[in-house]
Write a protein that binds this DNA or RNA. Structure first.
Ligand SMILES: [Zn+2]
Ligand SMILES: [Zn+2]
Ligand SMILES: [Zn+2]
Ligand SMILES: [Zn+2]
Lengths: 130, 130
DNA sequence: TACATAGTGTTATATTATAACAATTTACTA
DNA sequence: TAGTAAATTGTTATAATATAACACTATGTA
């Protein structure tokens, strides 16, 4: 059992905001929302985001420059992530498929190289948007 | 047989540069390199990049905000891409594995949803850096 | 020709992210 | 418990990435 990571004040404020959000949040939208709580500068946001990503509490959606809370209780470290992204409404869902993660974690390239980390983003239309 | 896409002048200049590069290129590094050829503004670069990505001649490495020429002659459209990225030297290689692309193209999530596009980035250490 | 479509050139601006430095808090240990 | 290293914070400034808006030009085709 891994020791539960305690969040600092800024990290907690920012995590709570992202966690409550129903959609991925961008850094400056986060900044705008936490200014009333005393977080005034971009760096304060980015530092908290970096840490939260590092410990796996949130993930960055690279194609959108946005951040989402981990929806997968087992993601204690951010090293194997997969998302589905709707190209119309921009809804993002973290995919948790044992077979997918097994396949990718064990994937070896032509040279037999195995990787320590991956990020996969699927694009399509969600149920509502079809 | 798909009609060969003809590139415009700016597109060709920028594609040639990226194609010759041994590493992914960032937009402003591209701009710097093509200024002597008359491409002076970021927008001229980004417009060419957008088009080249759209037709599959180059791909964007999302985690690096950089662009690489397609190394896979069959990628006429950019809709199923996979890369390996060395976390030390930043070397990027396009992975072309029939079994991987088959697995991902056919992947369905819990709701039975199939996706029209994906991008996968693997991270690790390349041969040289291990 | 007339029209639609795609591409270009240009200026300005928006968005995303980091550098540098000083101060403070926290956790560990001598 | 004082000492100290590590992590976090606050702050200002700036770097890096990307798009808006508008006028103009080339290209294909009816
Ligand atoms: Zn997760
Ligand atoms: Zn949707
Ligand atoms: Zn390709
Ligand atoms: Zn390497």
């Amino acid at each position: 059992m891994q020791k539960q990571q305690l969040l600092t004040k800024n990290q907690q404020i920012i995590f709570d905001l992202i966690d409550k959000s129903t959609e991925p949040m961008k850094a400056y939208a986060i900044l705008f929302n936490v200014q009333k709580k005393g977080i005034k500068a971009p760096l304060q946001v980015y530092r908290a985001l970096d840490k939260l990503v590092e410990i796996g509490k949130i993930h960055k959606i690279e194609s959108r420059n946005a951040f989402i809370a981990c929806q997968n209780s087992s993601c204690q470290v951010s090293k194997a992530t997969a998302f589905s992204i709707c190209e119309i409404c921009e809804k993002v869902t973290e995919i948790s498929s044992a077979s997918l993660s097994k396949y990718l974690t064990n994937f070896k390239d032509k040279d037999g190289m195995k990787y320590s980390k991956y990020n996969l983003e699927f694009f399509g239309l969600c149920k509502k948007c079809r």
